[in-house]
Design a protein around this nucleic acid. Sequence first.
DNA 1: AGAATAGTGTCTTTCAGACATTATGTT
DNA 2: AACATAATGTCTGAAAGACACTATTCT
Lengths: 232, 232
Amino acid sequence: MSLSCDRDDYPRFAVAVDLVVLTVREGVFSVLLIERGVEPFAGTWALPGGFTHPEESLEDAAYRELTEEAGVGRGQVVLEQLRTYGDPHRDPRMRVVSVAWVALGADQPDATSGGDAARAAWWPVDEALEMELAFDHHRIVEDGVERARAKLEYTTLATAFLPGQFTVAELRGVYEAIWGTPLDASNFHRKVSAAASFLIDTGERTARGIGRPARLYRAGTAVGLHPPVLRR
Amino acid sequence: MSLSCDRDDYPRFAVAVDLVVLTVREGVFSVLLIERGVEPFAGTWALPGGFTHPEESLEDAAYRELTEEAGVGRGQVVLEQLRTYGDPHRDPRMRVVSVAWVALGADQPDATSGGDAARAAWWPVDEALEMELAFDHHRIVEDGVERARAKLEYTTLATAFLPGQFTVAELRGVYEAIWGTPLDASNFHRKVSAAASFLIDTGERTARGIGRPARLYRAGTAVGLHPPVLRR
DNA sequence: AGAATAGTGTCTTTCAGACATTATGTT
DNA sequence: AACATAATGTCTGAAAGACACTATTCT
């Protein structure tokens, strides 16, 4: 079959991937943005992303851009497809269809500044949503943030924001940062402890800091969460 | 890049839309399939769909294919983006990225057989999932069906499967058909009546059939459903 | 001892699920 | 009257939310 442009009947589009990379840094729900160095939107903050190569899957393209532009490796994040954005004039240069992904990971000491020349930085989600972002990236960030908030309720996804071992208080901190609401510590503890295969007790305890040391858990095998942890 | 069309640096892809058109016909959760007339997969059942035009949005392309291939108009369905499928070899002819949509509508007397030469038919979802479908359409149907099943729980989407006026029993029938589980009529009635802005009493009643006539409702303005209707 | 954080227990309200009962039409 | 379906009511258990209380460390 011909892949050439002159011989077949199908219109061709550039296909991009864009990444909403989310984490919780010092209690603040944050998104990774990149300052564009070239037109269009030079000097404007944008999502990391780029064009899909001819022989790679969309998921591989997302992982590749994650590494190239954010310095984040495959094992460090949970990647999930968000939605595809394809309005005819979303990119002023040409018709680009962009498959957006959400990447959730634990806070990394120096995740910013990938191989590209552009500057990368973590922004609090609330601030990012008040900025002007390139293309339709404002909308994409909104959708990605809402996806993350919604999935915390009925999945065990919150553990993706934490390192291998964590306490119940740290897990609660993830919920509170992402939802922007304080949660009752007692009830939260009861709930997540009761949910089957959500948390696995490592037998270890924290030694850091003041107060009674907390048990250390690691993420269990459960994906869904029954009963869900509800936001109000 | 080597795949480029002489003038720019970006590889180009064909972008398609595929449609998982779902309805409940005589108590059976059903999906609309089209028998392919041409290679590849000639004679195999497939989802309705086609290539996006250069100047139309993805949503417009979905509505256009819905009309062309299924004879379904814009006002007759609720359309929602499902997911994008872009494995390099999902189409043996060339690289095609397909944006899949779910379309939910009330049973239409003669929705099948659109303008295209191919044959169209409603298939029970369970049967469709046991057939060999063209391309990766089996996976797409699975995802679309699961999306519909999940959204019934916490949204008012079930009304999309019903005509303008309907009874509580008919609404329950939608849930039972889609989930494949019988529900307790009393508890269901209590729940959907209590949910704010889910159902609006038209003041009219059914005259058809035997037994006490049922109140006729129309869909309210609520989108989310609190508390949710849970499947077990 | 006092402060700070972790974790458990108790009480009340809400709601799901099972099922009985009443209501209102047709034959 | 008998029947069929619609709609409401009652009871029980599970779980959410508020909050009191106990446990275990550090200074």
